[in-house]
Amino acid sequence: MIAKKEVLIVTHCYPKDNKDSSGIWLKRAFEKYPVLKIGKYDMFSLNRLKEVKKHNGYLIACWVIPAGILAYLSGKPYIMYCLGLDCFWAKRHWWVALLFRPLLNRAKMLAFSSRHLMETLNAPYGDRYRSKSRVVHLPISSEEFYPK
């Protein structure tokens, strides 16, 4: 079994503190794992790359851009967790699909927060990544949302 401390979550969208709600759903999913929050444009930041490389374990890169690029450049084994608009860009623009290709090739697995996103990102690549694509939803607590 992979211990939680061996996994590092890399993401640009994560709450700064308890008052910040941006990416709160990602916190719910990975609250027991260590998280490296990066900036939106940190995909080519050497300092960030050094931080990622320092981690002695596995990565879950949340979003292809920017976290997926850092994960790729780090040379560490990673799962790409695809959550949003970048999947639509790859479907719409051939050059984005081309840019994503090496990042997706090297990912151990592609996880998607919905079936629709899985279909969307896989569309430009045919069956190339189907066998390593999985849907893993973002969790929602029934203690927070329940009928009246």
């Binding site: 079994m1 992979i2 996994v7 719910r28 999913a29 027991k32 596995y58 799962i79 697995m109 996880a111 999985r134 893993v136 939803h137 973002l138 969790p139 929602i140 607590s141 029934s142």
Partner: peptide
Amino acid sequence: MDPVRIQGEWQDLLD
């Protein structure tokens, strides 16, 4: 959307 089940899915995937 059960958090416990989804955490289990992540663990399986990582393993």
